[in-house]
Amino acid sequence: MTATLLRQVEGAALGWLSRNRDRFALGTDALTSDGSVNATWKPLGELAQVCSSLRVYIPRSDPLHARVRDLLAFAWRETEQGELLVRLQRAEPFATYPLEVYAAFASAGLRHHGFEEAAAALSRTRGRQLTEQDPTRRLGVVMAQRHSGFGRHDERLDERLDEIVRRTWLGGLPEPWTFERSAGYALTHVVFHLTDWGRGGPGLPSDLAAYLATWLPAWLTTCLEAGMWDLGCELLAVAASLPGPPEEAVPVRDAWAAIADARLDSGALPEEAGAGEADAEDPGDASPFARCYHSTLMAAFAAGLTAGQGGSR
């Protein structure tokens, strides 16, 4: 039952992403100083990140594998095989987001030697190391360095990771009833970073895994009751990242039924209930895409991870 639902959600989401592939194109303002990162590099990096993970989970024999591979290749072409990321890094040498976007490609084996050399040099500066960031983002940068071929031989890496993790909302094991939207997104990203977006990584410390298994059901249920589909999918991906037999730690059958029901006819998943009911494929209106693309990516990601975890492939 759940396997069928997962397949439907994943297939519909990837279908919508393929049909709307060009909406992820960088556009002319991606390298201008007043360009909006959130409307250019962020969606493209997220597309690359999800596809990098899904290509591991979806077997080559599955037609969805080719779809994912095509989306990833498209995203890489958009960066001109990394050249635009080199230019972006030169324009903003001490910003960390070019490295974070690059790492999504590098983790799938799509690499640019020049970018990595420059990024490694920049990362050695005290200025870069002292960049003021919240701990969850910091964790993402450290992991991005690891994927980009440097920082991997840091003997203190585990220790440093642990120090950062303990300063995150999740790592401090807070009272679960203090969970709110921003805490939710922070915690899901701590898990995604530590598990390399479902591909392994350093993994979750056992106390964090136990804490998540205890409280995820309450957060997942309340997010879905509130129609928060985007965060709900991220929490479903977290549930699929926990060690142990699926469905035992966090039952997700009802949650997937709710996600399947929340989809639009186009296959997209709106960020929240009531958002994105307009035709997200109307080429004249960009806002429905903005309200759907991330939740649809997360639906595909969470469904792929859950299916992989449950061995339903």
């Binding site: 679960p176 009833w177 969970f179 205890t214 409280w215 059901p217 309450a218 957060w219 249920t221 309340t222 009751e225």
Partner: peptide
């Protein structure tokens, strides 16, 4: 019941 306590506060 602990999970329900969390849910009730969230709601």
């Amino acid at each position: 019941v602990s999970r329900g306590f969390v849910r009730a506060i969230r709601r």
